[in-house]
């Protein structure tokens, strides 16, 4: 089990010595069950840091955002930033390193192992508790959560209320870290990976289209999925003409060459295109943090969509995103033995 005191002490040490500019971690939220991401810059704030099953967010996003802010501020503070990273978060950081988004020296990874469990799915928990309202959730041994409600604390089997992605997690231990808290547990044996995707594939074409058609129709195109995704770090989104950057030095030729692949209106066809482009652009890059699905205001099953190609990456191409920053990416590499029989 993770000793949070050690985590706090480590963060405090980093800030006291001034070796890092900021520590991105989790602290107790003032609004609701889930922890909130915190960027702390003072050693004294380190005491606020927590790590429990409510720490669902992928903090790799904050590294991406921090880079943008530093650039906007024209900051010349070149010290690294520290980040608390679960197994999935560390894979995201690895993908970002693979794509040279930042250098290894510029980030200090404080790895935290989820060990036998993972993080909580707030919706599942609410369903489980019925009328009771969860106030806090903590690890309770190897395979349970201690859930505190207004009626006291109870122990719930983790598998019952754990996030789907954690149930299918292939590596709960950070793959990349400068320091790691908690022990490595390789074999978790909860669900087989890609279970949900495989179940969906078994459905008929008609049913699948009926399902996705409904989902795409409901999309508001609020772009919350894009905003929360650490891989969607482009300044300009190819399928969102609103995001096109017009700078003083943008030439007329550049403006003329902007492609409006889809219409802005949240029509079904355009939303379908948007989500498919995102899924394609995430192929071999998505590390299954499922943040897109969690933040979607209309509950579109984006994790299901985006892990479809991750399944191909893993099973067909033996490609495991976020495993090695030195590997070429999935689509900028090939093998002679790649599938060929689908071609006529």
């Amino acid at each position: 089990m993770i000793d949070v005191a050690q985590l706090k002490a480590h963060a405090k040490g980093l800030l006291e010595k001034g070796t890092v500019r900021t520590v991105f971690g989790y602290r107790k939220s003032t609004a609701g069950l889930l922890a909130e991401p915190a960027g702390i810059t003072e050693a004294a704030q380190a005491d606020d840091l927590i790590f429990d099953p409510s720490c669902v967010q992928n903090l790799a996003l904050y590294l991406v955002n921090d880079k943008k802010h530093q650039a906007e501020k024209r900051s010349d503070d070149k010290r690294p930033v520290a980040v608390v990273a679960k197994g999935c978060d560390s894979r995201a950081i690895t993908v970002l390193l693979q794509e040279n988004h930042f250098s290894r020296e510029s980030v200090h990874v404080i790895g935290v192992s989820c060990e036998g469990t993972g993080v909580v799915d707030a919706r599942k928990l609410a369903r489980k508790l019925g009328n009771k309202k969860a106030l806090a959730v903590a690890f309770d041994g190897a395979d349970a959560f201690a859930v505190t409600t207004n009626e006291g604390t109870q122990s719930i089997a983790a598998a019952e209320v754990m996030a789907e992605r954690c149930l299918e997690c292939r590596s709960a231990h950070p793959t990349l870290s400068d320091v790691v808290f908690g022990e490595a547990k390789a074999e978790r044996g909860l669900h087989t990976p890609f279970q949900a995707v495989k179940a969906k594939i078994k459905e008929s074409e008609e049913d699948r289209w009926a399902y996705w058609s409904r989902q795409f129709d409901r999309c508001l195109r609020c772009y919350a999925c894009r905003s929360v995704c650490p891989m969607c770090y482009c300044d300009e989104c190819v399928v969102d003409s609103i995001s096109f950057v017009i700078a003083p030095d943008t030439t007329a030729e550049e403006k003329a060459n902007r492609i409006k692949w889809i219409e802005r209106s949240p029509a079904k066809s355009e939303s379908a295109m948007y989500h498919m482009v995102r899924a394609i652009h995430l192929a071999g890059r998505c590390i299954d943090c499922a943040e897109c699905e969690r933040v979607c205001p209309v509950n579109i099953p984006l994790r299901l969509l985006n892990t479809r190609l991750e399944m191909e990456a893993f099973e067909t191409f033996q490609y495991n995103p976020g495993s090695d920053p030195e590997l070429p990416t999935l689509t900028s590499s090939f093998r002679d033995t790649d599938p060929n029989s689908f071609i006529r």
Partner: peptide
């Protein structure tokens, strides 16, 4: 290359059959 849009992710460098692309100074 449209430098304003390039992030230096190196995918094109890896995929180029001719080794014709590299990451260049000053902004990689």
């Amino acid at each position: 290359v449209r430098l304003s849009h390039c992030t230096g992710c190196e995918m094109c460098v890896q995929a180029c059959p001719y080794g014709a692309i590299d990451l260049g100074a000053p902004s990689n």
